[in-house]
Design a protein around this nucleic acid. Structure first.
Lengths: 213, 213
DNA sequence: GCCCTATTGTTAAAATCTTGACAATAGGGC
DNA sequence: GCCCTATTGTCAAGATTTTAACAATAGGGC
């Protein structure tokens, strides 16, 4: 990373995974080089924005040539941290938790899902994609032993805040939160939260469908 | 709606569901009135932004008093269209589709989930939360008969674009897309797409966890 | 009924984000 | 090896979004 990335704006960051995805596709299709212009057309962006975004991290392109797909893909991957092995746990093995554990390739996204917790006694000893399910009573002890840093929350909103609080004190520094609740971790430095509000997303779609925009 | 809402920015729209959620909580807790200031504190926004956002749609507040929670909640609900009954189908009854069908209260979000489609013969005749699962071969005929307008896509990315194309010609005007693929419907006016990229969200979290922002 | 306080709606300023423009230059054909 | 073309990196302009400021005014206490 050749530039100071301490003040990269969150808008840019949120676009990086999409670049990474498109470049991965191009690479898989054997495309070797691409210009900001063709990429822009493909991604429905302006070439200017792509060049501006990429230049936040350094000059990955060559004048008169464009960008080498494989190089750019791996550079963006490195920026995002796809090879980091953040120890991850998931709490709540209901339908949603189950689907998330199966659906996402955590390892390719920089996270290693190592344990799942639930309150349902019937699930104890079982596993999802060979990741063991433990009783939530064992959570604190597990954290002390294994020091996970990322927690995926697939639990009812009523339980979310207090569980998050105790997870923070157990060392969790990042939450991927699917409960219908906005986690409040302002009191705590260095804790990041991605709230995924599927309900909000659906409501936005409803508005847009009704207003044709 | 007392103001022209044809040029409301998408940033404002995307905040509305969150307002709606917080106001719903306040209402459920028996709070009758709230000022932009207290709401801002609660939601981690500026009071100015809240007033500006709400005023896109008209003056819902009273000087010296604030906003009536129940009124504001229902006004925002009406703007979003929570009472619209958009006929909705879901395609792909795997773990994710299953979880989405169960997890989201479609009716409270302006959509009525009426049918689920899959290719797995073993699922035919079964149902999820009493919504029937049909063979995807029956999709076209179903659309002609029942005229659904919203489609939830929980299918592999390889199948997404061609299925979306045929759904558009069958009358679908809104997609809630969970496949790891950016649906392209530019060629078609009046079709809206909400891409939910869970993988992108996780990658963003990874970046933030690694960079502590 | 009057005055004081709280709080809005609105306007203007500041900040941020996106787009356009273009000089600099690497690469490839001849 | 030179010139022409393609395309970047970057700077400046334009657009949008967010925040601050404040006059206008409704409500409630006395």
């Amino acid at each position: 990373m050749s530039k100071d990335n301490s003040k990269i704006s969150i808008s840019v960051i949120k676009r990086l995974p999409r670049y990474y995805r498109f470049l991965g596709e191009l690479k898989a299709n054997g495309i070797e080089r691409i210009s900001s212009n063709s990429l822009a057309q493909m991604m429905n962006l302006t070439a200017s924005q792509i060049r501006q975004d990429l230049n936040c991290f350094g000059g990955f392109g060559h004048q008169g040539y464009g960008y080498n797909v494989a190089v750019l893909h791996s550079k963006i991957g490195a920026i995002l941290g796809v090879d980091s092995k953040l120890k991850t746990i998931l709490i709540g093995a209901g339908h949603l938790g189950n689907a998330i554990a199966r659906h996402l390739d955590f390892e390719k996204k920089g996270c290693v899902l190592e344990a799942i917790f639930d309150i349902d006694e019937n699930l104890m000893g079982k596993n999802i994609c060979s990741i063991p399910i433990y009783n939530v009573a064992y959570l604190q002890e597990y954290c002390e032993k294994n020091k996970p840093v990322v927690a995926v929350l697939c639990i009812p909103k009523e339980a979310a805040q207090s569980l998050a609080d105790s997870l923070v004190s157990a060392g969790i520094r990042a939450f991927w939160n699917f409960s219908h609740y906005d986690l409040n971790t302002d009191y705590q430095e260095n804790v990041v939260v991605e709230n995924v509000h599927l309900g909000d997303s659906l409501l936005t779609l409803t508005y847009r469908a009704n207003n044709e925009i």
